[in-house]
Computed example of a mutant assay.
Amino acid sequence: MDANGYSDPFVRLYLHPNGGKKSKRKTSVQKKTLNPEFNEEFFCTGPQEELAQKTLLVSVWDYDLGTADDFTGGVQLSSQASGEHQQHWRKWLGRTDHQLELWHPLDE
């Protein structure tokens, strides 16, 4: 949270392991809010067998002008994860023709 009591959050997505900029995405910054709604879509391409071996790292950051952005929290989705994180990953891999929206609490 910034000194004004708000945050300027954005989300970074990284499909790991994978080299290059194609595996990294970032949402727009939502200014002065503690309850952001991004409503943005991202797409991954490639054989399902390859995607199943990767991990999707989702991290939330507070944008700061002139200084380093502040890490707020994140989540890792993969077939090696446990509980809802693993279930979400498997649902995502199995639904290539549909939009999937699920909620996860952020880990510190």
Score class of each variant (00 low, 15 high):
residue 103 W to A: 10
residue 42 F to Q: 02
residue 89 W to I: 04
residue 95 R to F: 10
residue 104 H to A: 14
residue 101 E to V: 14
residue 8 D to Q: 03
residue 15 L to A: 13
residue 23 S to H: 06
residue 61 W to I: 00
residue 24 K to D: 09
residue 15 L to C: 10
residue 36 P to I: 11
residue 41 E to S: 12
residue 15 L to Y: 07
residue 91 K to G: 10
residue 77 L to G: 01
residue 10 F to G: 01
residue 42 F to T: 04
residue 32 K to M: 13
residue 99 Q to V: 07
residue 101 E to M: 08
residue 34 L to H: 11
residue 34 L to S: 15
residue 6 Y to N: 15
residue 18 N to M: 11
residue 2 D to V: 09
residue 46 G to K: 09
residue 59 S to P: 02
residue 5 G to Q: 08
residue 44 C to A: 07
residue 63 Y to E: 01
residue 56 L to H: 01
residue 70 D to N: 09
residue 62 D to L: 13
residue 72 T to R: 12
residue 81 A to L: 11
residue 30 Q to M: 15
residue 86 Q to F: 07
residue 63 Y to A: 00
residue 13 L to V: 03
residue 14 Y to C: 03
residue 88 H to C: 13
residue 44 C to K: 04
residue 69 D to M: 02
residue 89 W to V: 02
residue 36 P to F: 00
residue 98 H to R: 08
residue 31 K to G: 11
residue 14 Y to L: 06
residue 96 T to I: 10
residue 40 E to T: 13
residue 97 D to I: 07
residue 23 S to V: 05
residue 30 Q to E: 13
residue 77 L to F: 08
residue 55 T to W: 03
residue 84 E to V: 14
residue 48 Q to Y: 03
residue 24 K to I: 12
residue 20 G to E: 03
residue 40 E to V: 05
residue 45 T to G: 08
residue 26 K to T: 12
residue 59 S to W: 03
residue 28 S to P: 08
residue 16 H to C: 09
residue 89 W to P: 00
residue 41 E to R: 06
residue 30 Q to C: 14
residue 64 D to N: 13
residue 76 Q to Y: 14
residue 12 R to G: 05
residue 43 F to Y: 08
residue 85 H to I: 01
residue 45 T to Q: 07
residue 16 H to Y: 13
residue 83 G to R: 06
residue 20 G to I: 08
residue 1 M to R: 05
residue 38 F to E: 04
residue 98 H to G: 06
residue 63 Y to M: 01
residue 18 N to H: 05
residue 40 E to W: 05
residue 65 L to A: 08
residue 90 R to N: 14
residue 65 L to S: 11
residue 91 K to R: 14
residue 28 S to T: 10
residue 57 L to P: 02
residue 40 E to M: 07
residue 11 V to W: 00
residue 56 L to D: 00
residue 75 V to C: 11
residue 44 C to R: 03
residue 10 F to V: 01
residue 33 T to L: 10
residue 77 L to S: 00
residue 102 L to M: 13
residue 36 P to Q: 06
residue 53 Q to E: 13
residue 68 A to W: 09
residue 9 P to W: 02
residue 106 L to T: 12
residue 7 S to N: 05
residue 51 L to H: 03
residue 28 S to R: 13
residue 18 N to G: 15
residue 81 A to G: 08
residue 17 P to Q: 10
residue 90 R to V: 05
residue 65 L to R: 10
residue 108 E to T: 10
residue 59 S to G: 07
residue 39 N to M: 04
residue 36 P to N: 09
residue 2 D to W: 06
residue 85 H to F: 09
residue 105 P to L: 09
residue 30 Q to Y: 10
residue 78 S to P: 04
residue 23 S to W: 01
residue 88 H to I: 15
residue 95 R to S: 13
residue 30 Q to L: 13
residue 83 G to L: 07
residue 23 S to G: 05
residue 57 L to C: 07
residue 94 G to V: 04
residue 4 N to W: 03
residue 108 E to P: 10
residue 108 E to I: 08
residue 68 A to Q: 12
residue 16 H to K: 15
residue 108 E to W: 11
residue 73 G to Q: 14
residue 96 T to L: 07
residue 26 K to W: 00
residue 53 Q to S: 05
residue 48 Q to P: 00
residue 28 S to L: 12
residue 100 L to Y: 13
residue 80 Q to E: 14
residue 61 W to V: 00
residue 54 K to R: 04
residue 75 V to E: 05
residue 12 R to A: 03
residue 6 Y to E: 12
residue 19 G to V: 07
residue 42 F to A: 02
residue 46 G to C: 06
residue 14 Y to F: 11
residue 92 W to M: 12
residue 80 Q to A: 14
residue 96 T to D: 12
residue 15 L to K: 04
